[in-house]
Amino acid sequence: MTLTRDDAQRGTPAPAPGTRTQQKRWRSADVRAGYAFLTPWLLGFLLLTVGPMLASLYLAFTDYNLFRSPSWVGFDNFTALFSDPRYIQSVKVTAVYVLVGTPIKLIAALAVAMLLNLKHSAQGAYRSIFYAPSLIGASVSIAIVWKAMFIDDGMVDKIGQFFGAPAGGWVGNPDMTMPMMILLAVWQFGAPMVIFLAGLKQVPAELYEAASVDGAGAVRKFLKITLPMLSPVIFFNLLLETINAFQVFNSAFIISGGTGGPAGSTLFYTLYLYIRGFTDFQMGYASAMAWVLVLVVGIITAVFFKTSKSWVHYSGETR
């Protein structure tokens, strides 16, 4: 969740600090102190991350319901996934959310950041106000408010009817729940916007001046200066927002009452994983789902980093 821009600019995860100056031989006091200081993290890493990951990899190949001991079923869980209509539904729902919601959110974030960047004096307050939804958007409170606004005869229904839209709330209409969820995501454009804004401030003003002298218009400046100069930040935001979008859970859970309804239209991947794992107690099946998610997110991350070389520009970086 927190690659810095600088990491993105390097194109790889940050190397361990001080690798270059590292001596061949370690002082034994340092070694002892190093492991002593690292103990909390090491324990957490082994007990809460690596151990559970291996356990879930094992469980993914078993039938396990918490009441009886796991029984080995080979690849059955994985093959079952692809003949499970609800699983396929959850993949579709999540894919639409990621592929449609994330770009809209990022475009909104970039547009508002550029707008704010026009007038620096106003930034402080607006930046904070626009950021606020990112802080509370995933809370139960906001999910409840969202549902209340989009329900039958609710505010959005009334406004829609005023503009001639057919009557009816969005919450009960499987075709409208996804737009509703995407609006909730777009409403939280503040976090990527703040990052865009920080990136925009670093674009040297001389570049724009030089382009003006050459007679370049606004569009040309945007395409030739802003986008390339901003590409590391775009890369960073795109990666983070995509990974986050895969993991949306709270709002879908609250709005659908934990069912992914109506008619499976809010059955997000993580929600279905929760239903399988913690409602039906099919822990093996849910673990298989979790590992498929890890693989997909891993592949997407790798593809992002691979392709980034061709479109992310690191001007001014010595590489």
Partner: peptide, 9 residues
Amino acid sequence: PIERTKQLE
């Protein structure tokens, strides 16, 4: 209509 039922729950 089911749409309405869902929202009345």
